[in-house]
Amino acid sequence: MFHLNDLWPDGLVWLLLASTVLSLFLRPKIWPALLSLTAVAALYFSRISPLALGVVVIGLVVAKQSQRLTGAYKVICHGFVIFWAAALVLHLIPGFNNLLVLDKAFSGSNSTPFSMYLNLDKPQIVFGLVLLVPSMLKHTTSITKPQFTIVALLFVALPFMAWSTGIVKPEISLPAWTWVFIINNLLFTCVAEEALFRGYIQQRMIERLTPFAGIIAASLLFGLVHFAGGILFIAIATLAGLLYGLTYYWTGRLAFAVVIHFAFNLVHLLFFTYPMAS
Rank of each mutant, 00 (worst) to 15 (best):
R27T: 13
E207D: 12
H3G: 06
S164A: 15
Y200K: 03
A277K: 07
L102E: 06
A162M: 08
I76L: 15
A87Y: 01
S219T: 06
L243F: 00
S278C: 01
T210A: 01
Y73Q: 14
T140V: 13
S66V: 00
I231D: 06
A152K: 04
T251W: 10
V62H: 04
F272K: 07
A18Q: 07
H226T: 09
T165V: 09
D121V: 03
I172G: 07
L232W: 15
G11P: 02
M1P: 07
H139D: 14
D10R: 14
H139Y: 08
T238S: 12
V21T: 08
R253C: 07
T20I: 06
T189A: 13
H139C: 05
K138P: 01
N119Q: 09
Q65Y: 10
F148C: 10
H3Q: 15
L69V: 02
N5R: 15
R68K: 12
V259G: 05
P28G: 10
S46F: 13
P159K: 07
L37Y: 03
A162G: 07
A41G: 08
I201K: 06
I183Q: 09
L88H: 05
K29L: 12
S142E: 11
I231N: 10
G59V: 04
H268N: 04
L246A: 09
A86Y: 12
A18M: 11
K104L: 08
F127P: 00
A263E: 11
L220E: 11
G252T: 04
L16T: 06
S164W: 14
K104T: 10
V191Y: 10
P113I: 02
L186N: 07
T178V: 13
L246E: 10
E171Y: 06
F148D: 03
F233M: 12
A86F: 07
L187A: 06
T141M: 05
L35N: 09
N184T: 03
A213I: 15
H268L: 06
L232I: 02
L129F: 00
C190I: 02
H78M: 12
Y244W: 15
D103I: 01
I82A: 09
L51V: 13
L196E: 06
I215L: 08
A85E: 01
E193P: 00
F256Q: 08
T238D: 05
L174F: 15
A217K: 02
I260N: 08
V133F: 12
A228M: 12
Y117E: 02
H3P: 01
N184A: 02
W14A: 03
Y44K: 04
N119T: 02
T141V: 13
L239Y: 11
Y73L: 15
I234D: 08
W177N: 05
P170Y: 03
I182N: 00
P123H: 06
S46E: 15
R208D: 04
